[in-house]
């Protein structure tokens, strides 16, 4: 469980990125974080694993206060938080396997990581995850030899290799085509469901968010202006988050998309369940 209380971030330049942000993410919940560019989405998720230093407020991950940690303690918390990035952020010249195994860096001593001699169970986990994201045969390829969608799968495997208690996802689909975007979102959400992993997904695409997440938090100019299930994300709520725009037209498109999505799923799965 992640609890954020009164989180505020003011950059050295004086820009207020976040003001008094508070919310709780229970186990297994997938949260979509939406808002216009510059609303502080990226700052917020980077405050959680302290890639950005919060100015004030508290962040607790399963009762560990994160904001005051330093050195080795901070690294021990970071290894419990997996992160997936917008431009994948794989180390391009390393192999796919090395990239996945780098998820264990917080657990293994330097000599093991330097000699690439990871413990057997770490290697087994890496192979299992590569199989889960469908990249087993690419394990020994260099990361820069893969396509965008494949790279993001490696990014997902790297984050899961940490055996995280929380997943932070920063614009996972921003550099992908629409179809791959859906596949990646579906994969992330499925994996979170499988292991009851809570996740915060920072996302531009409102429709994609509405389709896949359990809960939506809307940020505007560093403040939470919406917090609720996707169904409550009405025209008014969107206007509160983004400002005036023709939302009904967009949502109509969304409904059609959702239908197509549902049909595709029905075609894929043998059993038509509670749909």
């Amino acid at each position: 469980m992640l609890t954020i209380e009164n989180l505020t971030k003011v950059y050295k330049t004086g820009d207020r990125a976040l003001t008094d942000v508070s919310f709780t993410v229970p186990k297994g919940q997938v949260v979509g974080l939406i808002g216009p560019s510059g609303a502080g989405k990226s700052t917020l998720i980077r405050c959680i694993n302290r890639l950005v230093e919060p100015t004030s407020g508290t962040i607790r991950l399963n009762e560990v206060e994160i904001t005051r940690l330093r050195g080795a303690e901070l690294r021990r918390v970071r290894r419990r938080i997996g992160m997936i990035f917008q431009e994948f952020a794989l180390v391009e010249r390393l192999t796919v396997m090395e990239n996945v195994l780098s998820g264990r860096l917080g657990y293994v001593p330097f000599w093991r990581s330097f000699l690439r001699r990871y413990p057997a169970k770490d290697v087994a986990l890496a192979f299992r995850l590569l199989d889960r994201v469908g990249l087993t045969e690419h394990a020994d390829k260099r990361a820069d030899a893969l396509s965008g969608g494949q790279r993001q799968r490696v990014g997902i495997a790297r984050a899961l290799e940490q055996e995280p208690e929380l997943l932070l996802v920063d614009e996972p689909t921003a550099s992908l085509d629409p179809k791959t975007s859906r596949q990646i979102m579906r994969l992330i959400v499925e994996i979170c469901r499988e292991s009851e992993l809570p996740a915060i997904i920072n996302i531009h695409d409102v429709l994609l968010a509405q389709q896949f997440v359990d809960r939506i938090i809307g940020l505007r100019a560093g403040r939470v202006v919406f917090d609720g299930p996707p169904i409550l994300l009405t025209k008014d709520a969107l206007t509160r988050i983004y400002g005036e725009e023709d939302w009904t037209a967009m949502q109509k498109g969304a409904a059609e998309d959702a239908q197509a999505e549902a049909e595709a799923r029905r075609a894929n799965e043998k059993f038509v369940g509670a749909l």
Partner: peptide
Amino acid sequence: EAIRATGASWLQLVNY
């Protein structure tokens, strides 16, 4: 940044 986010130490960051 991605390597730092895994909880890597400074030496591991340099190496990876």
